[in-house]
Simulated assay, not measured.
Amino acid sequence: MARIRAAFHDPDGTRYGIPTYWWKGAPPGYATRRQLTAADLRPGGQPVAAQVLWRGVGGTRTAYLYRVDLAAPKRTATPAQRAAIGKALTARRTCPTCHTVRPYFIPRSLGECVDCAYPQEDAA
């Protein structure tokens, strides 16, 4: 086992407090949040079960692992929630000055659409 791998190998958690593995060295049955999301799962309130440590840019990097067998299925949005999200996104594209729905989000720095913020450029 390489020295770097040996430095991060602590499967019983005596050195780091929780079971710790090296990069790509975790046993099956553990997954990161992104891996759970890709499998349409979520941690479901379970605590961090283990971690992966590796040397990266700026020092030691950490990825927390959760048990796959305790993961819950992802929740889906209700039709009312989807409708509310659609209305909120439409409101972000609606100019408060000219009340036109634009194909882009209204810049918060301007507070209105680009055409209303810079009317002299349209005339040219």
Rank of each mutant, 00 (worst) to 15 (best):
113 C>H: 02
106 I>Y: 01
86 G>D: 10
91 A>R: 10
77 A>V: 03
106 I>M: 00
85 I>Q: 12
96 P>I: 01
110 L>F: 11
70 L>W: 11
90 T>D: 14
109 S>G: 13
113 C>K: 01
95 C>D: 03
65 L>F: 12
89 L>K: 14
82 R>H: 04
74 K>Q: 15
102 R>L: 09
111 G>W: 03
72 A>S: 15
57 V>C: 04
89 L>E: 09
60 T>P: 07
58 G>S: 13
98 C>N: 04
75 R>Q: 12
106 I>T: 01
79 P>G: 07
80 A>S: 11
56 G>L: 03
82 R>P: 00
65 L>W: 05
108 R>T: 12
61 R>Q: 15
64 Y>C: 12
85 I>F: 05
76 T>Y: 14
70 L>V: 04
75 R>S: 10
111 G>K: 05
83 A>M: 06
54 W>Y: 15
106 I>H: 02
108 R>V: 08
74 K>S: 11
96 P>G: 03
60 T>Q: 14
71 A>R: 10
107 P>M: 01
64 Y>D: 06
78 T>F: 03
108 R>A: 14
55 R>D: 12
71 A>C: 14
85 I>K: 08
73 P>A: 13
105 F>Q: 08
82 R>G: 02
89 L>N: 09
70 L>A: 14
61 R>C: 14
70 L>Q: 15
98 C>H: 04
114 V>R: 10
94 T>M: 02
83 A>D: 10
60 T>W: 09
53 L>C: 08
82 R>N: 10
64 Y>S: 07
81 Q>W: 06
82 R>V: 08
98 C>T: 00
57 V>S: 12
90 T>F: 04
84 A>C: 05
114 V>Q: 06
56 G>K: 07
66 Y>S: 12
76 T>S: 14
69 D>Q: 09
105 F>T: 09
106 I>E: 00
86 G>H: 06
109 S>M: 01
99 H>C: 07
93 R>Y: 02
63 A>K: 10
57 V>A: 13
62 T>D: 04
109 S>Q: 11
75 R>N: 05
100 T>E: 08
65 L>M: 14
113 C>F: 06
64 Y>L: 13
57 V>K: 13
95 C>M: 03
101 V>M: 06
78 T>W: 04
61 R>D: 05
98 C>P: 02
78 T>Y: 03
68 V>E: 12
89 L>G: 00
68 V>R: 10
105 F>P: 00
114 V>Y: 14
97 T>L: 08
77 A>R: 14
63 A>I: 09
95 C>T: 01
56 G>W: 06
66 Y>N: 07
85 I>N: 06
54 W>T: 07
72 A>H: 10
52 V>D: 07
75 R>F: 08
78 T>H: 03
59 G>Y: 06
83 A>Y: 03
112 E>S: 08
52 V>G: 08
91 A>M: 02
91 A>N: 04
58 G>P: 07
95 C>Q: 01
115 D>E: 15
84 A>P: 03
89 L>M: 08
67 R>L: 15
93 R>L: 05
58 G>D: 12
54 W>I: 02
81 Q>K: 05
92 R>A: 13
